[in-house]
Amino acid sequence: MSSARSLGPRARLRSDEFRLLRDLVNDHAGLTFDESALYVFERRLAERVAQLDLRGFDEYYKFLRFNVRGLAELEEAIDAITTKETYFFRQDYQLRAFCDEVVPRIAQAQKDSRRLTVWSAGCSSGEEAYTLAILLLEHPLLAGFDIKVIGSDLSRSSIAFARRGVYRESSFRTTPEELRRRYFEADGTGHRVVDSVRRLCHFGNLNLLDGQRAAVVGRVDAVFCRNVLIYFDVRSRRKVIDNLHQRLLPGGFLLLGHSESLINVTTAFELVHLREDLVYRKPALGAQT
């Protein structure tokens, strides 16, 4: 029966239904969509409607709200509609700035504990986290440091993928050949991150809007939250940034994507002008007003 239904024509999404779904997604994950996203919703969610053997999007909406499995399904839906595009060594100028000017400051601050923790918040399939691990592993100032990279994402499937650590060619579009040779090994149809890098990385499933759950990350020296906030409305951005702020150690750094800024979001961070980039910093203890 269900197969007969899924073979039928795709469910159509009316604009009122779209708005209901969109608000639900926004409420849960902070993501915001304009009217043009209707077709993305329809295309990507029609399959879920068919799989659940529902008659249409009105039923799907009810399922999301009232079924016991509703929350899990909402996360599936969000997984289906979010942009998860990412690759290794993305925004290389920012990474250079991080290595040349941010890491030395952190290394100095942590010279006694010899620990350094970086969080890739919204890491998608993990490329960003592994990139950071490679850079930190390579960094001359960090020899003998206990390095930890945390990668987290709302999408469970992305986290499972990140743990596997096996990547296709498209992830390597901007990876320096030399690093690729040293830190990846052939594995079936893809390339697998070597153990010395994997060892530093820890992945978890977190909603950045949920400050309490995010506490499991502990306190970190730097957060990379790149190409995540652009999909959020202002209210959700504030909430996420507030949560990130709480996780940062005093004097810790926040690095956003190239089109993202904290303008109109918060004044809790100070702006740090580096040679190649602008980054944010949580004021160090005693520096706060």
Binding site: I150, S152, R156, I159, A160, H202, G204, N205, L206, R213, V216, V217, G218
Partner: peptide
């Protein structure tokens, strides 16, 4: 403790 706590975010 930290490692165990972080595992609360496992998928």
């Amino acid at each position: 403790l930290d490692a165990i706590v972080f595992a609360l975010s496992d998928e």
